[in-house]
Design a protein around this nucleic acid. Structure first.
Lengths: 313, 313
DNA sequence: GGTGGCCGTAAGCTGCGCTGCATGCTTCAC
DNA sequence: GTGAAGCATGCAGCGCAGCTTACGGCCACC
C-alpha cells in the first residue's frame, strides 16, 4: 500500500471502534459486580477480564468501571455503554434468530415466476400447498415466459422461474435447471369429432385436420410433435393462450394438441391421450446454484413436484 | 476447570457469534457490489475481503453473497444480515456519540448532595450557573449532612457531596476531598446590641453573653471557635437551622456565630466580622477519585468555587 | 497478624487475520 | 482466435491481539 494515510484512517486509529466482544465482557461485569465473577461466567481468567475492560476503556476514551476492594461497579459512562451494549447484543441475537427462521422456512420470501399455462392448475395447486406448509414465507408471484423468467433469475429479480421446454432459452451458464415433470400433450377434438369415441388417438390420424395451434413460445412444442409424427399441421387459427385454443376447438374450428396441465375440461370438447411417441413438454425450474439459492426455492421445487404428481396421477 | 462442558458452551461453540467487523465488510460489499471495491474502501486487499466474507458465512451458517464474474450480490440471507448490520453499526455509532456527549458535558447526570445551610445561597447560585453553562446535564439534588453525604458517595448514590468541616466524618479512604472555600464565621447580634455599632467584633467580648448555638454537626464549628477565643459559650437556646438561630437572635435571645454563607440579612439583626483567629468553617466536596468520577462533577466543583468567590468576594 | 479474595502487571505462547503472490474464470478488444 | 484486464480464491508467511500462568499490592475478615 503506497498511498498516504487518509483522514479516515487517521480518525479510525485515533478513535478505535468499540469491540462487541468487549461489550459482552462489560455486561458480565455489570451483572455480576466483579471481574472475578464475570470471568467465571465467560470461562476466562480474571486477568483476561481486566485486560479486556482496560482495552474497552481505551476504545471508549473513558473510565467505565470503578474498581474497589469489594468488586467492581460501572461508572456513568460505563452504564451508558452498557445500555447500548444491551441493544447491540440483542440486535445480533435477533439477526441470528432471523437467519435461523430463514433456514427453517419460518420466514423469508419466495419470488416465483411461471409461464402462463402454469397458472391454470400446477401453480395454484403448488402455491396452495406451499402456503399451508410454510405460512411464514411470503410469496411473490409473477407471470413470465421462459426467456423472461430465466432473465429474471439471472438478474436476481426472482428466485425461481418455472419454464417449459422446448423453448427459446439459450445458455443456462451459471444457473441450475431441475425437471419438475413431463407434461404429456393430449389431442383435443370437438365433442362430435369422428375420433372422439376412441380412448387413445394416433397423432398421424389428425394429419389432414384443420389445426388450432399455439403461437410464440408454445408453438415449438406442437410443431415438433407433429414433425415427429411425420406431418406439418394445417393451422387455421392460432393463439398464445391454451384456453382460447380450446375455445376454438369447441367452436369446431379444428383440432389441437394441448398439454394435459393446460386442459380446461369443457364438455364441448374431448381430450385424449396420444399414442406413439408420447409427445410432451418438459416443465422445469431455473434457479441460481445451490449455495446462493434461498431454502424457500428448494421447498417450492419439492411442492411443485408433488403437485405435478398429484395432477398427472 | 473440572466441570463438564455445559449446553450453553456447546451451543456457543457450535454457533459462533457474528463478528461485527465482518458485518462492516458485508455492508461494504453490499454497497459497492464487488469484493474488490469493498477492499478499496476498507483499505484491505480483495483476498482479505474474501476471507472475511467466507468466515462470516461460516458464522451465519448460510451463503450470504452470490459471487459472479461481474461482481458480488447479496443473497436473501445476506440482505437480512445486512439490514441487521445497519442497526448494529448505527447503535455502536450512537453509543460513541453519547460517550462523546458525556465527555463534553452535553449530556449526563450530576447527583449532588449538599448540607442544609448550603442551600441558603451557595448551592442555588452554583446550580443556576451550572444549568446555564451545561443545559444538557440533568441535575439531581438532595440534602444530606456531611456524614450521610460521604456515605452516599461511597455507596455510589451520589456523584458529589458538598460538606463542611469540622464534622464527624471519619476516614475518607478511597475518596477525594477538594476545598471549595473558607466560610468565615460572623458574629450575629440583635439590632440594638451594645456592640452593634462596631465594624468588627472581638469574639472574647461576647464571652459573657447568652448564646444561641447550632446543634448536631454544626455545633462543633461554633464550639471550636469559642474555645480558641478562650471561653465556653453560655448556650440558652439551640437549633439545627441557622435561619432559626438568627430568628432567636432577632428576638433578643442572645448572640450567635453564623457562617457568612448562611446569613439571612434581616434588619432586626446585625452581622459583623470577627477579628482575632478569623474563625471559619471549611466547605469542601467529596467525590470518588479522578478516574471513575464523571466529568459533570468536575464541572460542578469549578462552578461552586466561582459561586463562593462571588458570594464572599 | 495471618489468610483469602480482589484487581493489576509482566512474560510467554497460541492463533487469528492480514499481505503478497499465483491460479482459474469470464469478458472485452483487436 | 488470441491477448489483456478484472474478479474471486487458495496458500504460505508473518505480525499482533489476546489468552494463560505467575506474581504483586491492597483490603477485609477472622
Amino acid at each position: 500500500m503506497l498511498h498516504a494515510v487518509t483522514e479516515g484512517e487517521a480518525a479510525a486509529s485515533a478513535v478505535p471502534a468499540l469491540d462487541v466482544r468487549r461489550l459482552r465482557v462489560l455486561r458480565a461485569v455489570a451483572e455480576h459486580g466483579s471481574f472475578a465473577a464475570a470471568a467465571a461466567e465467560l470461562q476466562y481468567t480474571p486477568s483476561a477480564i481486566s485486560q479486556q475492560v482496560a482495552a474497552l476503556e481505551r476504545e471508549a476514551g473513558a473510565v467505565l468501571v470503578e474498581r474497589g476492594p469489594r468488586g467492581a461497579r460501572l461508572t456513568q459512562a460505563g452504564l451508558v455503554l452498557d445500555r447500548h451494549a444491551a441493544i447491540v447484543l440483542g440486535q445480533l441475537a435477533a439477526a441470528r434468530a432471523e437467519l435461523d427462521d430463514l433456514a427453517r422456512l419460518r420466514a423469508g420470501v419466495l419470488r416465483l415466476a411461471a409461464f402462463e399455462s402454469g397458472w391454470s392448475s400446477l401453480v395454484p395447486a403448488a402455491v396452495s400447498a406451499y402456503r399451508e406448509r410454510h405460512p411464514g414465507v411470503e410469496l411473490q408471484l409473477a407471470e413470465h415466459d421462459p426467456v423472461a423468467g430465466v432473465a429474471a433469475v439471472r438478474a436476481g429479480a426472482t428466485d425461481l422461474a418455472l419454464v417449459f421446454e422446448p423453448n427459446a432459452v439459450g445458455e443456462l451458464e451459471g444457473l441450475q435447471r431441475t425437471v419438475v415433470c413431463e407434461d404429456p400433450l393430449w389431442a383435443v377434438l370437438p365433442a362430435g369429432h369422428r375420433l372422439a369415441s376412441r380412448a387413445v388417438v394416433r397423432l398421424a390420424d389428425l394429419a389432414g385436420e384443420p389445426w388450432v395451434a399455439p403461437t410464440a413460445f408454445c408453438a415449438q412444442v406442437v410443431r415438433r410433435a407433429c414433425a415427429a409424427a411425420g406431418f406439418d399441421p394445417d393451422v387455421v387459427f392460432s393463439s398464445g393462450d391454451y384456453g382460447a385454443i380450446q375455445g376454438f376447438v369447441a367452436a369446431g374450428a379444428g383440432v389441437a394438441l394441448v398439454p394435459r396441465l393446460a386442459l380446461t375440461g369443457s364438455d364441448r370438447i374431448v381430450a385424449r391421450p396420444v399414442e406413439g411417441g408420447r409427445p410432451s413438454r418438459t416443465i422445469a425450474t431455473i434457479t441460481v446454484p445451490e449455495g446462493p439459492r434461498p431454502a424457500t426455492a428448494d421447498a417450492m421445487l419439492a411442492v411443485l413436484r408433488e403437485a405435478a404428481d398429484a395432477l398427472l396421477g
